[in-house]
Design a protein around this nucleic acid. Structure first.
Lengths: 150, 150
DNA sequence: GTATATTAAGATAAAATAGTCTTAATACCA
DNA sequence: TGGTATTAAGACTATTTTATCTTAATATAC
């Protein structure tokens, strides 16, 4: 698995937040219900995002969480790093300590190319774009469901 | 982490076996010593590779394990699948069940491209090639260490 | 101020992964 | 046949990840 479950939850939740064109706070309960994720677990995950200053939180009635920056200023990578750290960037596929340009492992060069692509994608893709794509995919899905029912 | 530790151990051990141009059996003890991996744990991992028919094993004196096929007939992917299963192929980055062409998640298309590259690399790269590359990397490392000592 | 809504934090439990230890099975050799 | 080397298998432990539950802190509204 490339990303931990916590990280996947963080991504899904933040994309959902981004897709709600809503300046106000959204309760974690609403997110956990919609995403079918345990409320308490999601709370913890989003707490980490809050600490990483990707989210802002507010307690009490009308409280909840919201993006700390415009959705197009939060990258896929920002979210991944806030939860899983930057393991992806400096970790060797074979888990060898010190693997790098000066002491490459047998898979270093081949993996570097792929890793660079993944990192670039994560850096270039942001929550706004992902949320837009999500809407696109969902409307496509609805249409093909309609077609299937003809 | 892309690959589990068990899988990484399997890869490292099988590359080491491939790099020993030796038709006979190699003891797991020798492998575990050289790779600094717990003997018992490596034994279990290699047992799975034996079950998957990537390795042959033999008990008793002069026993051990060896590749069941020529090193260039065992791909990176073979080893990964024998330990971690084929999760990489059919799993969604966002962990969504049913994610696919007909019901793509928000990251499906972007991830598909990267995933295909990873899968291709794993299918094309085999133990012989990795072992050769390992030797190359090691000699490079030795040379740069010499240069550093001038 | 009191009741209520909400996130924060901590304690605990469950599950998955990683690692160790012991015993069994098998093969060789003398 | 008996002793030794080796993988196979199972029991057990430890660690990490995931999940749940409880309590605390904070904000609102009446």
């Amino acid at each position: 698995m490339l990303l931990s479950k916590s990280c996947i939850y963080a991504l899904r939740a933040s994309v959902l937040i981004a897709s709600k064109k809503n300046d106000g706070f959204i309760t974690i309960r609403e997110l956990s219900d919609e995403l079918n994720i345990s409320f308490h677990f999601l709370t913890k995950v989003l707490q980490e995002m809050t600490k990483a200053e990707l989210l802002e939180s507010y307690k009490g009635p009308n409280g909840g969480v919201k993006l700390a920056r415009p959705a197009n200023k939060i990258t896929f990578m920002d979210v991944v790093e806030s939860i899983d750290g930057n393991y992806m960037i400096n970790e060797c596929v074979l888990g060898l300590p010190g693997c790098g340009v000066m002491k490459p492992c047998a898979l270093h060069d081949q993996w570097s190319v792929l890793k660079t692509d993944i990192i670039n994608m994560m850096n270039e893709y942001n929550l706004e774009a992902i949320a837009k794509n999500r809407e696109l995919q969902r409307s496509f899905e609805r249409k093909s469901a309609q077609l299937a029912n003809l």
